[in-house]
Design a protein around this nucleic acid. Structure first.
Lengths: 352, 352
DNA sequence: CAATTTCATCGTAGCGCTATGATGAATGAA
DNA sequence: TTCATTCATCATAGCGCTACGATGAAATTG
């Protein structure tokens, strides 16, 4: 086994700087069991005898052993990591979902590897590629709109994939979310039911944010179907911020001075509209009814309080976690429900 | 080398289900080079000849090879992962920092492993423990307040550690942030300079959020030092939300009916105060001057616009990334500046 | 032209762990 | 008692990659 002349390198000349890390082997030695038993204890504590378990626990404690999940992941051909890719973590919607999801996964010993694509499809593909490099237990993406290459990569990897915050198309694997056109339709329906006929939808960055665009077109369709003589969509090229809301209101009033109902693609925009109305003395809801989307923090408290549509970002997070955990525990239950509709709720407040 | 009788297991009986994963070996074979060369090409493309590089690139493309970073991390004894632990990702401050940090790290091929501690010290220790299990390239924590055990773990690991969003104590390794008492003092100073004397500081969850508590005490000290006859701190036990702001204002008016200056530990609370004032017809800034903290999205747009203190969450993210990258590239430049003060800026608007 | 240095490339030994099946003792059934 | 079954524990072979030093050819020097 040793020897080997000729071109074979002599083994004495080489030596990797042996890390002085505490390994499972050290624990095993101290506890006087084999490494396998330590490994077993760590993964399934009930499978080893109580006596051995105690010895091992004591040894771990004494040595301050920290398991190396990288090695474990390599050996097990799958790491306990779930890779989540969202357009932007600054967005309160996704922050909520990620937060919930993270808690649910952490409870089962899964870590979260986070990426944000900033709404770029090419960016996303690169992120998916690195995500897969970690042999993740699952990959979570936002929306159903991905490049063919991304879909191919993910399908080939055989890793569980959940697409969230959108349903209505063909998912790569599983999907949790709601229908954005329906949200738009609900908003329009609500304004129509309040007797409003001159409607405007205000959105931002809708060329990139496909889901906002879907809400807009759902709104327009329902508005026209409901007999609204005016039903415009106005887009702001920048991000969906409060400031954008003010700008959008002004543009809207120019284009349609008689408007009496406004839906926004986002509560932040609605808040901007609300402030601009305060500034200009436009009465809400008397002169203009206002409905947002997101049910953010401030929506109950603002003056007047904001009618909005709640997408339940936390529920989405919870359901995504449930699907992932189910798939990990039962990899072959492929017949399980793969698409979950978390629906949306319209919350009527004072602004309509 | 083979054979081996007695208790030695025969090798034919065992066979790990060889994954049909495309490995570096496959790429090497197709490109007719050794695996070492492929590895070298992937890490330092300039170190291989252009001809070989092209062959390898073509082979990678043909096979759809995705490198296994888990294996790489194990071999290199350090993964290209930076572990970030924040109290809450829902908090806009941290979302901003994490977002910036993530972009900066991604540009250098580093991934982000995210954890949130929900302001629990025990929670944090568990998170640090799992974080270290990934042999991360660096660990980023929030604040300087950590359990002794956490500090010990991190120091023993010899992993670069950055504590962010707070300076003024002894960091474990490096720190990027600003002084919270100074922020409180600035707020008090500003209100005093506007002739306000009956001051109140409104905060939430200050038993857990030590940094908010520091802002409060900095405020109280400066207020008293500046001769304010009234200078109270009022705490809300729940989260720092817009709704909490309204509740806090009402409590404040009960405790100190004559108050004429309010500082809030957070712009969200300030926004709640602002709305409650609108509701109750309290004129800002005439009757009460209001200053927040955070310079969130809405602060420019609200009515009246909000005087606030900007902590520069994105700058913190950038500086943290810089420190980490410097340390990774030059692990022994231990003499480098370890504490960076990103300072704060008071932005005067209409509310004071 | 020999001696030295550079350069691209290569072969191999781990990195620390888990999966697999083996082993032998203890237990139950026949 | 004898054989089958359960149970806790173990030995070993990789998982896919990178670091290390080796190798031989080409370029440079004396």
């Amino acid at each position: 086994m040793d020897s080997g002349g000729g071109t074979i390198q002599t083994r004495a000349t080489r030596k990797r700087r042996k890390m002085q890390r505490v390994t499972m082997m050290d624990v095993a030695k101290l506890a006087q069991v084999s490494p396998s038993t330590v490994s077993l204890y760590l993964r399934k504590p009930d499978a080893v005898s109580p006596a051995a378990g105690q010895d091992i626990a004591r040894a771990i404690d004494t040595l301050g052993y920290v398991p190396n999940l990288v090695a474990g992941g390599l050996a097990a051909a799958s790491s306990r990591v779930v890779s989540i890719i969202v357009p932007s973590i600054r967005n309160a919607f996704f922050a909520e979902t990620v937060s919930t999801l993270q808690s649910a996964l952490a409870a089962e010993g899964l870590q979260v590897l986070l990426g944000h694509s900033e709404y770029g499809e090419g960016q996303e593909e690169a992120l998916v590629r690195t995500a897969l490099s970690w042999a993740p237990a699952a990959v979570v993406l936002t929306g159903l709109n991905h490049s063919p290459e991304t879909r191919k990569l993910l399908k080939a990897s055989r890793v569980p994939v959940v697409e969230m915050w959108e349903i209505g198309g063909e998912p790569i694997d599983m999907a949790v979310g709601f229908s954005h056109p329906q949200v738009g339709a609900s908003a329009a329906g609500h304004l129509l039911s309040k007797g409003r006929r001159n409607l405007v939808f205000l959105g931002a960055r809708m060329d990139e944010d496909r889901r906002a665009a879907q809400r807009a077109s759902g709104f327009a369709e329902a508005g026209k179907g409901g007999g609204a003589p005016i039903c415009e969509i106005i887009n702001h090229p920048g991000a969906a911020t409060v400031e954008a809301g003010a700008l959008l209101l002004n543009r809207a009033l120019q284009q349609a001075p008689d408007l009496d109902g406004i839906a926004c693609s986002n509560d932040l925009i609605a808040l901007g509209v609300l402030f601009e109305c305060q500034r200009r003395g436009i009465a809400i809801p008397e002169r203009v009814a206002l409905i947002g989307f997101g049910d953010l923090d401030f929506s109950t408290s603002c003056v007047p309080s904001l009618t909005t549509i709640r997408p339940s970002g936390d529920l989405i997070g919870k359901e995504v976690a449930r699907l992932i955990l189910a798939r990990i525990q039962e990899p072959h239950a492929e017949d399980a429900r793969r698409v979950i509709d978390t629906s949306h709720v319209l919350i009527e407040r004072r602004s309509t």
